[in-house]
Design a binder for these strands. Structure first.
Lengths: 207, 207
DNA sequence: AAAAAACTTGACCGATTGGTCAAAGCGCCC
DNA sequence: GGGCGCTTTGACCAATCGGTCAAGTTTTTT
């Protein structure tokens, strides 16, 4: 409240706020909110600490704004799941979208994972509202497919849980996956995962 | 180095060290190493901060000792996977052991999850050594079952990844699971998960 | 029961933390 | 090019951090 926010949005504001978000994503994903420091974020963004505070109310504000700005992107793959398509193809496409997000946005995945593990005091409302509604809606679609006999009987909610778990695992537990697979399979990791998940979904859902 | 460790192990030492471990498990699982404070741990254990330091070298020592003491328990379910049993029954039993661990040891699950997500600088050696060996050994068993045509062809490593991911998901993402399922299904959550995973494993592996 | 050993803690310390503030720099429009 | 508002920062602050220490209390040993 005490600090007057700049009124109009200038070019510099867009650039610097974006740089801070990028830096904060790195730092928060690796250490969580409490484990991250403003100095780390400022250093990574190439700014001084007071300068960071000039653009955001404080450390927690960076965290919550970052989280909220990512939530939409994060649940978007599920939004695209269409009741009109061929059921198994739809679920396979959803699985691939989620796996691609693990490959291309591992920091975001880790950020959410850390937040949820630590009881998400900051995104609880979003989980309980929009996310739950969306999942309920799409679960109903899957339940419809089951009723029509177009896929094998399956609990839609646990199906989603397992898809989330398996795809996000490759981002969140990247270190473990890399260690167990060894350097030889570093290149093909996500291709192998894609093939495995494709086969799993088909076997699970084919009537 | 400076502080002389007590020589023999007394009753009080066992009790207090155990109390500190329990408290530390709570705190570390929720905040990670950097996010946890000695004051929090001491308060939860019902001790003064200097008293905690009396029993451990420092915060990091509590963390690493805790982690190491849990590692054995954590990978034990996989160790029990026997090449002599009926393949699908063996993998189902393994899945159930892992799911039971999520139900009964959620804090431990979250502690490991946080550690791995944050690049596990402290358990890397264990991952690269003993864990990798164990997984390689058991993956060979599964590969053997595939070769003999006793289960459907799968990549053993990705099979393990998916089982880890799905079972641990119920502990690590408990808040999300609970929110999506709603209070009505709170009681049956783990029974439903068990039924779902049983069906998934059977459909995935049955020839 | 007395001495030794083990245990406990209030007071304290230097380092780091999130955040403030006044003053100096900079860019952009007239 | 001069002025005004946006931007930047060095110096600083109170709070909290991990950890120390000397002095006391309790438990165990003899």
């Amino acid at each position: 409240m005490s600090r007057p926010r700049p009124s109009g949005t200038t070019r510099i504001q867009r650039e610097k706020r974006s740089a801070i978000f990028q830096a904060a994503l790195d730092i928060f994903a690796e250490n969580g909110l409490r484990g991250a420091t403003l100095d780390q974020i400022a250093a990574r963004a190439g700014l001084s600490k007071p300068n960071v505070i000039y653009y955001f109310e404080g450390k927690e504000a960076i965290y919550t704004e970052l989280l909220e700005s990512l939530l939409d992107v994060w649940v978007d793959p599920l939004r695209q799941l269409s009741a009109d398509g061929e059921p198994i193809e739809e679920i396979l496409a959803y699985t691939r979208r989620k796996l691609a997000m693990s490959r291309d946005m591992p920091r975001e995945s880790r950020l959410f994972a850390t937040e949820i593990i630590q009881n998400a005091p900051r995104v609880r409302a979003v989980l309980e509202g929009p996310l739950k509604s969306l999942v309920d809606e799409k679960a109903a679609v899957v339940a419809g497919w089951v009723r029509e006999g177009r896929i094998a009987p399956v609990d839609p909610y646990h199906l989603f849980f397992s898809l989330w778990a398996m795809t996000q695992h490759y981002a969140d537990f990247d270190l473990q996956v890399g260690t167990v697979l060894g350097p030889a399979r570093d290149q093909t990791r996500y291709d192998d995962a894609d093939a495995y998940l494709t086969s799993l979904v088909e076997r699970l859902l084919r009537v």
